[in-house]
Design a protein around this nucleic acid. Sequence first.
DNA 1: AAGAGTTTATAAAAATATTTAATAATATGT
DNA 2: ACATATTATTAAATATTTTTATAAACTCTT
Lengths: 409, 409
Amino acid sequence: MTSNFFKDIHEANKNGVAYKNIRLKKKILAYFATNETATIAELSKEFNISIPKINECVSELIEDELVKDYGKTTSAVGRKPNIYGLVANSAYFIGVQVGIDNLSISMINMKKDIVSKKDNIPYLLENNEQSLLDICKEINEFIAKHNIVKEKILGVGINLTGRINYRTGYSYSYFNFYEDPLSKLFEENIGIPTFLENDTKALSYAEFSSGILTDEKDALFINVDNGIGLGIMIDGKLYYGKSGFSGEFGHISIFDNDIICKCGKKGCLETEASGYALIRRVTDQINDGATSSLTKKFKKIEEIKLNDIISAAKKDDNLCIEAINYIGDKLGRGIASLINIFNPELIIIGGVVAKSEEYLSLPLKNAVNKYSLSTVNRDTKIILSSKNDNLASFGACLLLRDRLLNVTD
Amino acid sequence: MTSNFFKDIHEANKNGVAYKNIRLKKKILAYFATNETATIAELSKEFNISIPKINECVSELIEDELVKDYGKTTSAVGRKPNIYGLVANSAYFIGVQVGIDNLSISMINMKKDIVSKKDNIPYLLENNEQSLLDICKEINEFIAKHNIVKEKILGVGINLTGRINYRTGYSYSYFNFYEDPLSKLFEENIGIPTFLENDTKALSYAEFSSGILTDEKDALFINVDNGIGLGIMIDGKLYYGKSGFSGEFGHISIFDNDIICKCGKKGCLETEASGYALIRRVTDQINDGATSSLTKKFKKIEEIKLNDIISAAKKDDNLCIEAINYIGDKLGRGIASLINIFNPELIIIGGVVAKSEEYLSLPLKNAVNKYSLSTVNRDTKIILSSKNDNLASFGACLLLRDRLLNVTD
DNA sequence: AAGAGTTTATAAAAATATTTAATAATATGT
DNA sequence: ACATATTATTAAATATTTTTATAAACTCTT
């Protein structure tokens, strides 16, 4: 049943009455995907199609077990309309976050419920074939673990770090040693349609999809881990640019320093405002003789990690607080530029460094006020992400679902 | 005839067969607006509607004198299909560019032909009611000059400098002393629906609409006059941001200088990379004793204008060449950031300073290579605008036409 | 220059599909 | 229980699409 309809869906770009029906059903599914539920009357109004016709389509979708009757509404007088919505477990979507030293795999159903999730799977990202096959192995094991027929898993979305062209399925930073698109290789190994995505973009999508956006849906997500990533949502859609490489915010040149960035250039935002910069600043100062609670805890200064600095700051370690403040100010200056350019509705700051909370956000917002035009920044809400970790694989699921269901069209 | 249909158009968001027909006709008009002409078969394919039905709608549009038969195509074997297109003079659109010391008014017809144009109308932009009424007076005179019934002029688009919310019709930099939206005031005075637009955005639209964009239609236009403006096109649509204030590229903070920008802040791109900056740099150096062909020509150094510097550079004046080079390098650094963030298909550099040609563009492109990621900038073509002056009022016309005809939907 | 081969345009009839309008069903409040 | 309000279902009216046929327009070949 299900698979039949989803096979039809790919051929819906044809003429004729049969295909018109399929297109309408697709639109109805997309409506349910965004709006959870709807009555026949609502759908009729939305698509300018008569009630009997909508009724017919919904009935067919019910027969296909993609949609079901969720009972009656409660409010108002008169006969209560039936409300319809997607059948939660009529299909599934898998999302994979490929981290530097771990994997995270999630599976959601049609209603965005997380059906299964496995985080912190030991894994080492290296740019060789074995590392690629390891990912496939974990995904295949994950799938095998569940009693779900493969046809019901409509796709696998894989997040990789670095430059990804999601439209072509090519990866340019990792696993770029085949002639075929990387997505095709995954697909052949897994046996399910596979789509690649940049990790920051997938994570942004999860953040943006939490219902926080209202109006124009122009928003930015800034991922401050070791490096700095930027996910751009414009008019409710992720923005990619010509080749999918948009959002290299970490490497905009705004400082006159002499620090060589990992991209090879000097003066990048990342050299002063990232997790790397935070660690460098703290360790440099310790090496220069500054005192900190960290000096007792770590014999080898090189072993200090981002989380250690943030924890120390929360325990009133002055050196760490100052360092985070410094990062926040520099990052704020960069964000001020983004605000001037994008006039966004919302900016979400995420990533490990965002866990520093007000130690980061106060100097950051202060710098934003200092460096952006007040008439423009007045409209922008800046918040720290309140989401828990390992959201990226969920983002991959969500993005996949919304694409396959044409939610973003 | 015409006016009837355009009245219908605004009510087309209803149900019922009559409205479906109107919506289809609207879509056909929009198709003609973008694709110039089409055959019945093409339209049938495009909209998945049967040939007899398309025929019926096109016939009705011909009756309404909005569409006409443009004869036969030339290629291929078999009977040649008729091609249809818009009737050029079935309706008109007026665009007004409000400059600091002049007005420019253009009028186009449905086929984007410039029907009438009046440039360099003497006018002084001041933030008072008289200055506003002067604009209305000029527009009304412009309209009166033509023998066109007012109903055939479907709208007036007015470009103002500064912050404009085109959705609400409010202006925040000029003529912001009424409670009603400024667009409403214009409308009442002129008697034709009026829409406001930011001048850089309208100009960008004209630049982008010249058929230069192919793929994703993600492009940037940088207007380098005294200040620096940025027009952003994403997926073929102008990008506005939450309140329409996007594109304040001139005021991103990327320098550590002490020059106070006209926005009140320090370190803005505009302080080092704009026309103002160019003039300041040249005059400062002359004041410091540098020699230039300009020193002979101008007794009062304050009288040196942007165009004088560019002309001098083109006559091999070293001081001016060096100054333009400097501006180009700084601007290039700013543009490098835009490339990293947007990964655009195309960047067009326009405005008076762009007339410096290679004196500007070579150091600019050099800086772009220096300061942006090569994997990202590889995809971006940077060109100087080849358009003539006074394009902004045409942009206003175009934007208005395309909006009213739903081209960008 | 006539005719074969193609393709478009138009028309009309037959088959479907959609909308409209009427009716039945369901729910609430008095 | 009945008036009121709204939704669901059905049947009739209308509209659209498809099919079929024919005419028209054009090219190419002989």
